[in-house]
Amino acid sequence: MDIQRLISMANQIGDFYESYPNQSHAQHEIAGHLNKFWALPMRKQIAQYVNEQGGTGLHAAVQASIKAHLQL
């Protein structure tokens, strides 16, 4: 898929959780949402983008969440 599309979708999820007072919980929830609703090829692609290409354009919380909690 177009990586820009995945970036903007992931950032939207990050935006929802941005106002949560407990940010460590929010980070669980962001990747939790991806694990639950994104197909594996999409998760693999975004993980690769974060881990191998630096994740430019992704919000910091989203990147951190993907690194820590995304299931592949």
């Binding site: 609703f37 594996l40 999409m42």
Partner: peptide, 18 residues
């Protein structure tokens, strides 16, 4: 056990030939 593609994801994947 893996969630599948949603309609817009299917279309995005199709546009990329996948």
């Amino acid at each position: 056990k893996e969630p599948g593609l949603r309609i817009p994801n299917m279309l995005d994947q199709a546009a990329e030939g996948n």
